[in-house]
């Protein structure tokens, strides 16, 4: 690791803290708006989960897209920083996808009268999570560091196939129960609602928090942690060699 990189790893820049505080404030405001400002419809208070459920999916999608970009850059340049970013994208994306899945299940219990059904959107979402979980297994199973990075980059790009399909499946399959937020829902969809102006503003604030700021902040911190753990490993090896 170069000296400049080492310095960066040791002291987080001010803008990193600034971004983190901004994310905390936006998420806090979004949460308060979801609880106290936005109206509800006939679904009752459970509908407020939507402000976390939908934005967290787009946050996951952003993180997975960053993985694809970083993997592409890694395959071209073989620069370790892109591999680091790809791993971080998968981890943060997986966390947000799990939040999306869990909030969806809690919402479904009173609205669909079940925690889970094998609806196309839900099934694809679960497949997407399993695919990205397998990414970690792949990395753990290859000893050669360069090969591990190369193969993980390939798998990281392949895995976006499941994320794309999760996104578009409710447009392809008319038999889905999952309501569409943008555009008309399928005929069999249950749980759709018309967004009032207060709902729309609340959704926008939460989208900013969950789908943009939170993934970026989490990825930045996780990236720094990864840098530091690599540095620690390097020092440990040097110490053993000495």
């Amino acid at each position: 690791m170069k000296r400049s990189e080492r310095m960066k790893a040791q002291s987080p820049p001010l803008r990193e803290h600034g971004l983190t505080w901004l994310a905390i404030v936006v998420l806090g405001v979004g949460f308060a708006m979801a609880l106290f400002y936005a109206e509800t419809d006939q679904q009752g208070h459970v509908q407020r989960l939507f402000y976390i459920h939908m934005p967290s999916f787009f946050g996951a999608l952003l993180a997975f897209s960053i993985t694809v970009y970083a993997s592409l850059r890694y395959l071209r340049s073989r620069d370790v920083k892109w591999d680091r970013l790809a791993v971080v994208g998968v981890e943060v994306g997986l966390l947000l996808a799990l939040i999306n899945l869990v909030t969806g299940a809690i919402w479904a219990r009173p609205i669909w009268a079940t925690w889970w059904n094998w609806d196309p959107r839900l099934t694809w979402d679960a497949i997407m999570i399993l695919t990205y979980a397998a990414y970690g297994v792949l990395r753990g199973a290859i000893e050669n560091v360069e090969t591990r990075r190369r193969f993980a980059a390939v798998y990281g790009i392949l895995a976006i196939f499941t994320a794309i399909m999760t996104l578009i499946i409710i447009r392809i399959r008319p038999d889905t129960m999952h309501p569409a937020v943008i555009g008309p829902s399928a005929q069999e969809a249950r749980g759709s609602f018309d967004a009032s102006p207060t709902m729309q503003i609340t959704l926008l604030v939460n989208l900013l928090g969950w789908a943009l700021l939170l993934p970026i902040v989490l990825m930045r911190w996780r990236y720094r942690l990864q840098q530091m753990s690599e540095r620690l490993e390097q020092l440990r090896q040097q110490w053993f060699e000495a």
Binding site: L130, A133, Y155
Partner: peptide, 23 residues
């Protein structure tokens, strides 16, 4: 092609292939 480079092979192919093939 990846599998031939994997050191711990038991179960890895299933974990990698099944989620991608499920759709």
């Amino acid at each position: 092609t990846m599998f031939s480079h994997i050191s711990v092979r038991v179960g890895v192919m299933s974990v990698l292939l099944i989620p991608l093939i499920l759709p």
